[in-house]
Design a binder for these strands. Structure first.
Length: 542
RNA sequence: GCGGGUGUAGCUUAGUGGUAAAGCCCCAGCCUUCCAAGCUGGUCAUGUGGGUUCGAUUCCCAUCACCCGCUCCA
C-alpha cells in the first residue's frame, strides 16, 4: 500500500509535531477533539504574533500624530478582562439567544430542526395515528400537514377527507410521544431524536456549590468585556473620542465541527480592538481599519496572492451594520479558490453600547429598538447605566459608533506557518542539490532570531561562540548548537524558521568577525560581531 | 450530528494469529574549517477498552483521535 505524496497540509502538521510547533492536546490520553497545544517553537511564534499586534495597535501607537490614511489622530489603550462575566452580558450581547437552542435531529433525513420552530398536528386514519410535522409558513401549514399525512397513509388526493384531525396545529414542544412523530422530511414516523440542548457557549459553575444561580459562561468573544468597561476606561484614562481599546485573550465556543488543525477549535485566542468614534465619521474609520489591518498581514509576510479582503454584500450584513469585511487566507487545507477567515472588521454602529444600556436590541428592528418579551417588557434588561459620551469641546452628547477589527491569534499564527512552509533546493557538501525544508518566517515572527554555531568543536571556537551567544541572547532569542557538521546545523535552523546563523571560525578568535548566514538566500556575509547583531536587530524591527 | 477512510518508534513506512523490521531524526563518542545522508554504539512503537483464542499488533465489537465529504459556522 503506497500512499500518494502527502499534502502540503499533512507535511505542515507533521513538521509542527516533529519540531515542536503544535501538538495534539492531551495526546498521551488519546487526544481531545479540537484542542491543540503550542510547543517550544509554537509558543514563541504565537507570542510573537500577539506581541507584534499589541505593539503595533497599542504600545507603539502614536497618539499625537496623524497616521497615513487616518482622518485625525486617535488614542489607543488596552484592557484585560475576566473570562467569566456576569451572565446578563451574554443575554444583552445577543449570544444567549443566538447560541442557545433545543434541536432535534432526524435519523432518516439527517436534517436538524429547531425544536420550537417545528409545528405539527395529530392525524388519524383507520387505526393509525401520527403527529405530522412540516416546515411551512403559518398560512400554508394546514395544507402542508394534509399533504404529508396523505402521503404517509398512502391515500389518494380524493380520499384526503378521510383523515381525522385531532386538535389544531401546535409546536413539537408540546408532544411527548416522539415515536409517533413524522419528521418534516421523513417517510417513517419516529425518526426524530429527543430534543437536545444546543449551546454554543461553554457553561460553567461559579463557586463550589452547583445550582441554577451559580451558572456562568466562558466568554465566546473578548469584545463584550470591552463594551462593558467602556465607561470605566473613559472615566479613568482621560481618553477622548476617537479612541480604541484593545484586548488579547482566550475565548470559547462549542463549535459543532472542530476541523482543520488549529483553524476551527473550541478554545482559541482573539486579538480585538473596539474603536469608538463619532457616528458622522464612522464610515471613514471603518475604511481606515479595514485597510490598515489588511496591510498588517501583508507586512508580516503573507503573500498578496494568498490573502483577500472580502467585503460583505449588503444582504449579508446585519442591517445596523454599514460595513463588514473579512480578511481571508488561502489555507492549504481548503480547496483551490476558497479562503478561510483570519479577521473580521465590522462597523457595529451603536448596537453594543445601547444594548448594554437599554436592554438587548432587536437586531431586526429599524431603527433599532429594545427587543420585547411576551409580557411586553424588555426581553433582556440592560445595565441601565449611561454609556453615552459627552464631547468635552463641543459639549455634544452621543452614543459612539464602534468599528471592530477582530482577529484570531491562532488563525494568524497558522497562516504565517503555512505561508512560511517552503521546499526548495540547496547544495550539499559535494555541491549536489538536495531538497530543503525551510520556514520563511518574517524575522519579527520567527521563534528564534539567530543560531550561534562554532564551525568545528575545537580550537577555542565553542568557547568564543558561547561568549557571543550570551551577548546576543540579551537582545533576542538565540540558539546555540555545536553538534555535527555545520551544514546539518544550518538545515536544522532552516526547518525551525531561524532567519540567521552566526558562525564562529578561526578568524573570529583574532579579529572578532563572524559569518552571518541568511536563511532564505543562504548568502553569507563576513561582519564584526556588533554589526551582525545590529543587522539581526534591524531585520526584527522592520 | 451523518457517511467514508486512517491509526505500528519523534517522523515516514514495512510486516505478522506465536521473538515487531527499516530509513530518517534524536542521544553518546569519533571524524569534520561553511550548507544534511562518514564511522561506532545507543534510546524509543502496535491510540484506548473489551471480546474470541493456549496466545491478538493482526480477527470481532466499542470508544477516542485525525483526515475527506455532508451539515453547521453568531
Amino acid at each position: 500500500m503506497s500512499n500518494p505524496e502527502p499534502s502540503v497540509m499533512q507535511k505542515i502538521v507533521s513538521l509542527s509535531k516533529r519540531r515542536g510547533f503544535i501538538f495534539q492536546s492531551s495526546e498521551i490520553y488519546g487526544g481531545m477533539n479540537g484542542c491543540w497545544d503550542y510547543g517550544p517553537l509554537g509558543v514563541e511564534l504565537k507570542r510573537n504574533v500577539k506581541e507584534a499586534w499589541w505593539a503595533d495597535m497599542v504600545s507603539r501607537h502614536d497618539d499625537i500624530g496623524v497616521l497615513p490614511g487616518a482622518q485625525s489622530s486617535f488614542e489607543m489603550t488596552g484592557l484585560d478582562c475576566s473570562i467569566i462575566m456576569h451572565p446578563q452580558v451574554w443575554r444583552c450581547s445577543g449570544h444567549h439567544d443566538l447560541f442557545h437552542d433545543m434541536m432535534v435531529d432526524c435519523k432518516e433525513s439527517k436534517k436538524r430542526y429547531r425544536h420550537d420552530q417545528l409545528r405539527g398536528r395529530w392525524a388519524e386514519y383507520r387505526d393509525k395515528k401520527v403527529f405530522v410535522t412540516a416546515m411551512a409558513d403559518p398560512e400554508e401549514e394546514d395544507e402542508a400537514f394534509t399533504a404529508r399525512a396523505q402521503k404517509f397513509f398512502g391515500l389518494r388526493a380524493k380520499d384526503r377527507d378521510q383523515i381525522k384531525w385531532d386538535g389544531s396545529a401546535c409546536s413539537l414542544e408540546t408532544i411527548d410521544e416522539l415515536e409517533l412523530v413524522l419528521g418534516p422530511d421523513a417517510k417513517d414516523a419516529g425518526t426524530l431524536t429527543e430534543p437536545r440542548e444546543f449551546n454554543l457557549m461553554f457553561k460553567t459553575q461559579m463557586g463550589a456549590l452547583h445550582n441554577d444561580d451559580s451558572m456562568a459562561y466562558l466568554r465566546p468573544e473578548t469584545a463584550q468585556g470591552i463594551f462593558v468597561n467602556f465607561k470605566n476606561v473613559v472615566d479613568s484614562s482621560r481618553v477622548k473620542i476617537p479612541f480604541g481599546i484593545a484586548q488579547v485573550g482566550k475565548s470559547f465556543r462549542n463549535e459543532i465541527t472542530p476541523r482543520n488543525f488549529t483553524f476551527r477549535v473550541r478554545e482559541f485566542e482573539q486579538m480585538e480592538v473596539e474603536f469608538f468614534c463619532h457616528p458622522d465619521t464612522s464610515q471613514d474609520w471603518y475604511s481606515y481599519w479595514r485597510d490598515r489591518r489588511m496591510n498588517w498581514y501583508l507586512n508580516h509576510g503573507l503573500s498578496s496572492e494568498n490573502l483577500i479582503l472580502r467585503e460583505h454584500h449588503s444582504d449579508e450584513l446585519s442591517h445596523y451594520s454599514t460595513g463588514t469585511a473579512d480578511i481571508e487566507y488561502a489555507f492549504p487545507f481548503l480547496p483551490e479558490g476558497e479562503y478561510g477567515e483570519l479577521e473580521g472588521i465590522a462597523h457595529r454602529g451603536d448596537f453594543d453600547l445601547r444594548s448594554h444600556m437599554e436592554g438587548k436590541l432587536d437586531p431586526n428592528s429599524k431603527p433599532l429598538e429594545v427587543q420585547l418579551g411576551e409580557n411586553g417588557k424588555p426581553l433582556w434588561k440592560g445595565s441601565g447605566k449611561d454609556l453615552s459620551y459627552r464631547d468635552p469641546v463641543s459639549n455634544e452628547k452621543f452614543i459612539p459608533h464602534v468599528i471592530e477589527p477582530s482577529a484570531g491569534a491562532d488563525r494568524a499564527a497558522l497562516a504565517f506557518l503555512c505561508e512560511a512552509y517552503t521546499e526548495d533546493n540547496a547544495p550539499d557538501d559535494k555541491g549536489e542539490m538536495q531538497s530543503r525544508v525551510v520556514l520563511k518566517f518574517h524575522p519579527r515572527l520567527a521563534p528564534m532570531k539567530a543560531a550561534v554555531l562554532p564551525l568545528v568543536k575545537k580550537d577555542g571556537m565553542p568557547e568564543k561562540a558561547q561568549e557571543i551567544y550570551r551577548e546576543l541572547k540579551r537582545k533576542f532569542p538565540v540558539f546555540y548548537d555545536v553538534k555535527g557538521a555545520v551544514g546539518r546545523r544550518y538545515r536544522r535552523m532552516d526547518e525551525a524558521g531561524t532567519p540567521f546563523c552566526v558562525t564562529v571560525d578561526g578568524e573570529t578568535l583574532s579579529d572578532e568577525t563572524v559569518t552571518l548566514r541568511e536563511r532564505d538566500s543562504m548568502v553569507q556575509t563576513r561582519l564584526k560581531v556588533d554589526e551582525a547583531m545590529q543587522a539581526i536587530q534591524e531585520a526584527i524591527d522592520c
